[in-house]
Each structure stands twice: as structure tokens, then as C-alpha cells.
Amino acid sequence: MNDADTMVLPRLGSAEVGVEDPWGEDDPPRPRRSTARAAARAARWRVAAWLLPALLMGGLGGAGLGTAGPRAGEGTTWRAATSGWPDALDDGPVPLVPYHVLMRGWAALFGADPATLRVPSLLAMVGAAALVGALAARMFAPGTGVLAGLLLAALPVSTRCAREAQPYALAVFAAVLATWLLLPVLDRPRARRLAAYAAAVVLLGLCQVGALLLLAGHGWVVLAFRRRVAGRWLAAAAPGALAVAALVGSGVRADGLFPPGARIDPAALAATPRELFGAAALGATLAGLALFSLPLRRPAAICTAWALVPALGLLVVAGAAPVWSPDALLFTVPAWAVLGAVALSRVRPGRASS
């Protein structure tokens, strides 16, 4: 039995006979009058796909970086950064120890005033916006990459993450990096690529243990599109997950793996779009746009799994413990930005008028 016999969804990039393609994405590219000019233009767009989002994110995030005093939720980070090394290891839940060690070392090098402690978060969000742009450009088109990166940078929740000395921004960056490194694994799962992906998984778990729910989305993609590499993917993902599990220890309760949350109920679910994206209208708009990024046979399925599968996993955990929190799903926001950009990029005047 081969992949085609058991595949949940068709392979990435495969042309399918008899399947409707309403967006014209399988159409062959039109011939260019000047190949050199087209290549130069494409190169400029590829640079813009990561540069423009990085500049916007840096400007929006850096504007409020110097707000006086630790904000709500930053107190633990500030105490870990200003205390001795033993206290930095003992302060707060075990899953936060790697972040607190990082911030203690950062404070030793650059100081511990609130603005300085927020710089790692700002840098992480700038990197995430740039990498999202490059990822969407790689999966779809350079113009889509520009839109995706700018959408992520413009979201209020991205600005908030960039201005807070908390581990969420680093987890967002690590999630984008892991997904970026998943693509070459799906293509050709060589040892070097698998090792790079495994390192990104370790980084993701050290930044935010609950963000390892992303592996459920990645696993779905592997089973759907490249089932033949499932064993090698699992071998790459498992060490990172096991390393984090060893750090956390078997005695940690489920609610120690996620940000403080609530038991699942209709009110908590209804408040999620507003808290996750910064405004309920933005959440509804991105969800609506995401519907137009389908069909799932396109690479948009990767971002669909990234956006939805971890949320479903958290929903299952929240049925047994009070862990439902939009903050636990911040690492999925880049996926929503890419899906929204894909939908917007499909609005073509010429096609709409035909």
C-alpha cells in the first residue's frame, strides 16, 4: 500500500485532474517578456516579504517599550531577573524556568529595568513577523508573504506580546520557526533537516510547554500529505517533547503547563476571539478570511492545522482542568495571519470581473 492509497488529503503541489480550482492557483504562469526583469522584481518582493513586516513590527512594538514599571504578569519575570541565580531557578512554575534563566542572564548583561527586559520579546516578535512573511512567500507568493507579515505585525495582540517581558513572544517565534523547518522535512527528510526541526521543537517547548500542541497540527499535516515520512518526523519531534517532559517532571499538574485559565464554558469561548486577537471584530474577520483560504488540498492546509488543531487539543485538556486561556494559543496567531493573507491575495480584479 502506498501513500496514494491511504492519504487523507492530496500531496502538496500535486496537480489534480477533475478537481475544481476556483482561484486559478494551478494555472501555469504566464510567460514574461523579460525574464531578467521578472527575476529582479521577484527578488525585491521576496526581500519585502520579510523586511516590511519586520520594520512595522519593530516600530509598533518599540513605541511603547519604555512604559514605566512592570505590567501585570511581568512581576515574576522581573523578580527572576533581579534575584540571584538560585532564586531565578526556584521562582515560578517549573515550565517557566528556562525563560527565567534567559532573563536572568539578559539582565546580567544589559540591566534589569522594565524596558530592557522587554527587548527579547520585541526581538522575538520582529523575527516572527519577518519569518511569517518569508514563510507565506515561500508557500504561496511574495505578495502573499508581504500581506501575511504585515497582518501579523498590525494585530494588537502582536504589539502586546512585543511589549511584555513574558515568554509568549518567544513561543510565537519558535512556532513559526518550527513550521518553516517542517516544509523541507516534508519535501526531503534528510538528517540535517530533521535535526534542525528537532532543535526548533526543543526551543518551542522551552519557551512555552503548552505550545507543543503545535506538534499535533504538524502530525496531522504529515499524515495527510507525507505519510511515508511519518516515522522520521516522529523521531525528530519526540526528543524535543521528551526533553521538555523531563524538565517539567511527571509530578506537575496539567494547569502548570499552561497559562492560568478557566474551565471551559460558553462565556470563555465567546471571549476568546477578543482576547486572542485584541478585538472581537478582528477575530471574526480573520476567521471569515480563513474560510476563503481553502481548499485544504493547497498548502493552506498546513496553516489551517496550525491554527485549529492545537485549539482543539487545548479544548480537550480544558475539559479536565481549568486551563482554557487565549494566551495559551498565542502561538497560533501567525497561522491566522497567513490564512487571512491568502484569502486577501485571491481577490483579483480581473478574475472578479470575469
Score class of each variant (00 low, 15 high):
residue 2 N to C: 11
residue 10 P to T: 10
residue 11 R to I: 10
residue 11 R to S: 13
residue 14 S to E: 15
residue 16 E to K: 00
residue 20 E to R: 15
residue 22 P to T: 08
residue 27 D to Q: 13
residue 33 R to N: 12
residue 33 R to H: 14
residue 44 R to T: 01
residue 55 L to D: 01
residue 63 A to E: 10
residue 65 L to H: 04
residue 67 T to L: 03
residue 71 R to D: 15
residue 72 A to S: 09
residue 75 G to S: 12
residue 75 G to C: 02
residue 76 T to Y: 11
residue 78 W to C: 03
residue 87 D to H: 15
residue 88 A to E: 11
residue 88 A to V: 11
residue 92 G to H: 04
residue 94 V to T: 15
residue 96 L to Y: 08
residue 98 P to D: 08
residue 100 H to G: 06
residue 101 V to R: 08
residue 105 G to L: 12
residue 110 F to W: 15
residue 112 A to V: 14
residue 114 P to D: 02
residue 117 L to M: 11
residue 123 L to D: 06
residue 125 M to V: 09
residue 133 G to H: 00
residue 135 L to C: 07
residue 135 L to R: 06
residue 141 A to I: 01
residue 148 A to D: 00
residue 153 A to V: 01
residue 155 L to H: 04
residue 155 L to T: 09
residue 158 S to R: 00
residue 160 R to W: 11
residue 165 A to K: 07
residue 169 A to Q: 00
residue 173 F to I: 01
residue 177 L to C: 05
residue 184 P to L: 03
residue 187 D to T: 10
residue 187 D to F: 04
residue 188 R to K: 12
residue 204 L to K: 05
residue 204 L to M: 06
residue 205 G to F: 04
residue 206 L to T: 01
residue 210 G to N: 06
residue 213 L to Y: 02
residue 217 G to L: 03
residue 220 W to V: 15
residue 230 A to T: 10
residue 234 L to V: 14
residue 239 P to Q: 13
residue 249 G to A: 14
residue 254 A to V: 15
residue 254 A to T: 12
residue 260 P to F: 13
residue 261 G to Y: 05
residue 261 G to L: 05
residue 261 G to A: 04
residue 263 R to D: 09
residue 266 P to D: 03
residue 271 A to F: 06
residue 272 T to I: 02
residue 275 E to L: 15
residue 280 A to R: 15
residue 281 A to P: 06
residue 288 G to W: 05
residue 291 L to A: 14
residue 294 L to E: 08
residue 294 L to Q: 14
residue 295 P to K: 08
residue 296 L to D: 05
residue 299 P to V: 05
residue 302 I to M: 09
residue 304 T to D: 03
residue 306 W to R: 04
residue 307 A to Q: 01
residue 312 L to S: 08
residue 316 V to L: 14
residue 321 A to W: 13
residue 325 S to L: 07
residue 326 P to E: 09
residue 333 V to W: 04
residue 336 W to Q: 01
residue 339 L to E: 06
residue 341 A to C: 01
residue 343 A to Y: 07
residue 344 L to P: 07
residue 344 L to D: 04
residue 345 S to R: 13
residue 349 P to F: 12
residue 352 A to V: 10
residue 353 S to C: 12
